[in-house]
């Protein structure tokens, strides 16, 4: 049985009368990649700050690496790597100096920092930019440098808050690739995301958060099996007949459906078979798509809303 690195029970964070995190429970195991999936404002970042020992919990129990984050915050942080949502690189310094400064915060000797800097810059593909200033680097490069920086202390847990938010698709894939390699090497990852593809690609296990609470927990596959169907039939109708079609489909199909503003989603075992029945009933969609269910569908089912608007 793998070691439990983080245990949260009834973990709560309030800011005045606003409850950002409302009594959540979870365990993080050694070597897993654990995700918090949810829309903006669900309480993910507040949770990450508590895990990063920079935000004392209002209530509940939180144990990180066997210690209390309020009393032993500094000792715990020495063992964590943190990739914050916003870049906090020092743009007046070079790529290498950023790692040097950060390594010193952890009290690492210069020789160790030098050695790790070489390895880490190689890992995030920034070796050629080592002596360049940070300012002109692209968003994706800055993110990769932030990831390198977070690994300078050889952390037990790597915490990533929305690691690819704001990156273009290509840069996002490069970051995913690097994170996937870390995961393959057994680094314990905690990440938040509101991208379901990110969660599906990277997370061994995840919780779905909405309105400060955890609404579901499991592996991506488990969640899809539990809260969605093997296939999803997406139908798009002429806007003029959209509502009528939605009504009619409810009669044809006993399966669950979600009527979005622009599309109708049918949760079915066999998409093609359902599509044939829709056509038999005289409905002709403008476009149709049969696809496998994703975490987006899970989220839609659990909350009635989409993840990213």
């Amino acid at each position: 049985m793998p070691e439990v690195l983080v245990r949260a029970r009834g973990l709560t964070k309030r800011f005045g009368s606003f409850t950002a995190v409302d009594g959540i429970d979870f365990d993080l195991y050694q070597g897993e990649a654990f995700g918090f999936l949810g829309p903006n404002g669900a309480g993910k970042s507040s949770t990450m700050r508590m895990l990063g020992c920079v935000s004392p919990p209002t209530q509940g129990e939180l144990t990180i690496l066997g210690a209390d984050p309020v009393r032993d915050g500094a000792a715990i942080r020495a063992r964590l790597g943190v990739v914050p949502q916003e870049d906090t690189l020092d743009v007046e310094l070079t790529v290498r100096e950023n790692l040097l400064v950060y390594g010193r915060y952890f009290g690492l000797p210069r020789s160790v920092i030098r050695e790790r800097t070489a390895q880490l810059l190689d890992f995030v593909q920034l070796t050629e930019r080592a002596t360049d200033m940070v300012e002109p680097l692209s968003g994706g490069m800055k993110r990769r440098l932030t990831i390198a920086r977070s690994l300078i202390n050889d952390p037990d847990i790597l915490i990533l808050d929305e690691p690819t938010t704001g990156l273009d698709p290509q840069a996002r894939h490069v970051v995913w690739d690097r994170l996937f390699r870390l995961k393959q090497r057994g680094v314990t990852l905690i990440l938040t995301t509101h991208y379901m593809d990110e969660a599906e690609q990277l997370c061994d296990r995840l919780v779905v958060m909405d309105h400060a609470k955890i609404v579901a927990e499991g592996t991506p596959r488990e969640l899809i099996e539990r809260y969605a169907t093997p296939e999803v039939l997406e139908l798009r109708f002429d806007p003029d007949v959209h509502d009528q079609a939605a009504e009619k489909i409810k009669d044809i199909s006993s399966e669950r459906s979600e009527v979005l503003a622009d599309r109708i989603l049918l949760y079915v075992a066999d998409g093609d078979e359902t599509l044939a029945r829709v056509r038999q009933a005289g409905l002709e969609p403008l476009t149709e798509l049969v696809r496998r269910a994703t975490l987006e569908d899970v989220f839609l089912h659990l909350t009635g809303r989409r993840l990213v608007d």
């Binding site: 050694q30 210690a67 010193r104 915060y105 880490l120 680094v187």
Partner: peptide
């Protein structure tokens, strides 16, 4: 590679350096 060592389970050693050392790091 540096990160490969991470698979070994670890318990935290609650050893925080002296305050002055930490201020000097900053």
């Amino acid at each position: 590679m540096l990160v490969e060592e991470l698979t070994a389970p670890r318990t935290i050693v609650a050893k925080v350096p002296q305050s002055f050392d930490l201020a000097v790091r900053a």
